[in-house]
């Protein structure tokens, strides 16, 4: 089973990270799921693949009533992002899935009906969670061509999806980035190969630098906190991406 860590709390406004499953087989990439709660409602960010559903579900339900999930935010279309969609819908068939319009007819292959999907336009949009306004921030081509991060201005938290992701070796699995230089080595190969556009990366760095962020929370690896957030943005800005050898 995965563990839950509350990484932000102000009354009933919470960010909960669902992380690190010791029983997960190695052939599945490790993922972080995040739950934002506000009022009585919850929004689950990148709920993960069908295979890890039991582990995510059981961890989440120790914190929150899964039938009170108002929606799912899918940063993009990958199977490790939301192939569990059909299973979550069993708990609340009225749940909405917010996703880039680009994937609006692709993700239904994982489940859901016409009513399930709320398309995010390319420029992004606000998503309300019981009055809390969250912002879908464009991160196209990083890596997916229709890709969004989710920014919570009140909590100063940013869910960055695959941006900032690191493939951590066994044993180096702390929740927060401790030694940036050491950590970033596990992120470098991933960013060079998965991220498709230097131009898009440049724009993302500019856009995100203007936001007030305490924590940058990726879908794989560890969370960047405090000064490490800007350190990551600077590092990413310098990195040449879209490179494949061979």
């Amino acid at each position: 089973m995965k563990t839950t860590k509350t990484i932000f709390q102000d009354g009933n406004h919470k960010w909960v990270a669902i992380v690190r499953d010791p029983e997960k087989p190695n052939y599945l990439i490790d993922t972080n799921e995040y739950l934002i709660t506000h009022g009585g409602q919850g929004l689950l960010l990148d709920p993960g693949g069908a295979e890890i559903f039991p582990a995510v579900f059981s961890a989440l339900s120790s914190e929150f009533d899964p039938s009170a999930l108002a929606g799912i935010f899918a940063s993009h279309q990958d199977p490790d992002i939301c192939s569990s969609l059909a299973l979550w819908l069993e708990f609340n068939p009225k749940m909405r899935c917010h996703v880039s319009w680009l994937w609006g007819s692709f993700i239904p292959h994982f489940g859901g009906s016409a009513e399930t999907f709320v398309m995010i336009p390319d420029e992004g949009c606000d998503i309300s969670l019981d009055g809390l306004i969250l912002r879908a921030v464009p991160a196209h081509y990083l890596h997916s061509s229709g890709n969004f991060n989710l920014y919570d201005k009140v909590a100063k938290m940013m869910f960055s999806g695959d941006v900032g992701a690191a493939l951590l070796p066994p044993g180096e699995d702390s929740l927060y980035v401790e030694d940036f230089d050491k950590h970033i080595r596990h992120a470098e190969g991933f960013h060079r190969r998965w991220m498709g556009s230097n131009e898009a990366k440049r724009r993302w760095c500019e856009r995100v630098s203007q936001l007030d962020i305490d924590m940058l929370c990726p879908q794989h690896g560890a969370i960047y906190q405090g000064a490490n957030v800007q350190r990551f943005i600077n590092w990413f800005d310098e990195l040449q991406v879209g490179i494949v050898s061979g």
Partner: peptide, 22 residues
């Protein structure tokens, strides 16, 4: 069967949760 298997695992991991009803 695939869905039931995954829901079953969820219910075993958290027997007090809604998973049992679902």
């Amino acid at each position: 069967l695939r869905h039931t298997g995954l829901l079953h695992q969820a219910a075993v991991l958290s027997p007090q949760s809604k998973a049992v009803g679902v």
